[in-house]
Design a protein around this nucleic acid. Structure first.
Lengths: 122, 122
DNA sequence: ATTGACAACATGGAATGCTAAGTGTTCCAT
DNA sequence: ATGGAACACTTAGCATTCCATGTTGTCAAT
C-alpha cells in the first residue's frame, strides 16, 4: 500500500490508518503494531516517517513502545470522556485545517485561470 | 544553556522547559517561540531535536506553527472539553470525508480546465 | 544439558542534509 | 513612487545515517 498523493503529510496518513485500525479492532489492545521496518515498507516511506507517526500516537497515549520488543496498543481504548473527545476534536481540527489548505490552493489556481482567461479576452 | 545529562531525552527536556514557560506566562498566548535555530543554539542541540520537541507541543495543541512566520502559543491553553458526542463526532468525521471527496473532485475538474486554457494559450 | 557468545531484530534518540513553501525586507528599475 | 526581483529567514516534511539499548533465538563449547 502506498501513501496517497494528497496534500496530507505521509506521517499523518499513517496515523489515520493506524488509528482507524485500532478503532475498528483490527489492531486489538495489547497487540503489537507491525515493526517500523514493515510499516515503512508497507507505506513506501522511510523509517523516519513511521517513527514520526508512532511518535504522534505515543504522545496521544494510544500506543506505548517497549524497547526491543515492539509498539503495543494501549489497554485503555477509551479513557472516559477525556482523551477520546480531545482525540476526535484534534482530528477534526486537523482535517479542517487540511481542507482549508485545499480550499486556498483551489482558490489560487482558480485565480490563475481567471487571469489567463480575461487576459486572453482582452 | 545546555540540556542536562539526566536520563531524560533532550527533546523532552525542551518540551518541559517550553511548557513551563508557557504555564508561567513567560511565553504568553499569541506570542511566538524563539525560532528553531535559536532554540537549537540555546539548548545546544541540533534542529531535529528542537523539531521533535515542537512536534510534541503541536500534537498536544499547545502551540501552532505557521509556515514562514514562526511557532505561536495557542490562545486556548487547554481544552478538557468533555462531551458524550462520540457518535456525533463520528458523523462529523463522516461528513468531513465527504467534503474532502468533493474537494478532490473539484480539484480534478479545475485541473482539466487549467490544461485546456494553458494549452490553448501556447 | 546448561551456559555463554553472538547475530538478528526491535525501539529510541540524535545529527545532517535536502526540498518545499510562506513571510518579510531591501533595493532597484521603470 | 510603485512594482517587482532578490535575498534572507522561517516552519514543515522527508530521507539517510549512526549509535545506544533491549529482546530473542541460535549455535557452539564446556
Amino acid at each position: 500500500m502506498m501513501v496517497e498523493k494528497t496534500g496530507r503529510p505521509a506521517y499523518l496518513q499513517i496515523v489515520d490508518e493506524l488509528r482507524a485500525q485500532i478503532r475498528a479492532g483490527s489492531l486489538a489492545p495489547g497487540t503489537a503494531l507491525p515493526s517500523i521496518a514493515q510499516l515503512g515498507e508497507r507505506f513506501d516511506v522511510s523509517a523516519s516517517v513511521v517513527k514520526a507517526a508512532i511518535s504522534v500516537l505515543r504522545t496521544e497515549g494510544v500506543v506505548i513502545g517497549q524497547q526491543g520488543k515492539g509498539v503495543f496498543v494501549c489497554q485503555a481504548p477509551a479513557e472516559p470522556s477525556e482523551s477520546q473527545a480531545s482525540d476526535a476534536t484534534a482530528e477534526i481540527l486537523d482535517q479542517l485545517g487540511q481542507m482549508r489548505q485545499s480550499l486556498k490552493e483551489l482558490g489560487d489556481r482558480l485565480a490563475a485561470v481567471e487571469a489567463a482567461v480575461f487576459e486572453e479576452q482582452k
